[in-house]
């Protein structure tokens, strides 16, 4: 059962990574997550937004990112979308330590971190149309 939803849109600049993960953390508070779960969600959201900025829009600062959040009974879903270049080989992009930008000192750990900290991570991407990362996580709800 859907309990809450929200959406924010912001410029694709690295300043907004902090903004996005703070919004995500504030949004899930209603689910009564543990500090650890909040940290995991913030990190996963930060990775997805960084991907959109660095890869989707090639760090140009042009373009916008939409983050949608949905809270269900005991879980949360985040969808982070850009209208950038898209990912040509999603499977390879998700491999640990693979990076499309080795010259930029990227660690290639983004997807691995998202997959470790969330329960599921889906990627929808179309060349020159954009990318959406959809992540879900069940929250233990310690307070209930």
């Amino acid at each position: 059962m859907l309990k809450n939803s929200m959406s924010v849109e912001f410029m694709a600049i690295s300043d907004n990574e902090r903004f996005a993960r703070s919004v995500a953390a504030a949004f899930v508070i209603g689910l009564d997550p543990t500090m650890e779960e909040i940290s995991e969600i913030k990190t996963a959201v930060s990775e997805a937004v960084t991907n959109a900025i660095i890869h989707g829009y090639n760090d140009t600062g042009r373009g916008r990112i939409v983050m949608e959040g949905t809270i269900y009974e005991d879980s949360v879903e985040f969808r982070i979308s850009d209208e950038g270049v898209g990912i040509s080989d999603i499977r390879r992009a998700r491999e640990p330590l693979y990076t499309g930008k080795p010259e930029d000192e990227r660690s290639g750990m983004g997807f691995t971190i998202m997959e470790t900290f969330m329960d599921s991570v889906e990627v929808e991407s179309e060349k020159n149309k954009g990318t959406s990362i959809i992540m879900t996580k069940t929250v233990k709800q310690v307070g209930k």
Binding site: E17, R21, S39, K42, T43, S46, E47, T50, D104, E105, R106, S107, G108, M109, G110, I113
Partner: peptide
């Protein structure tokens, strides 16, 4: 208090 994979990139670099 917070670090994502960009931090790993800096350390590796």
């Amino acid at each position: 208090r917070f670090m994502d994979s960009s931090g790993i990139g800096v350390i590796m670099g």
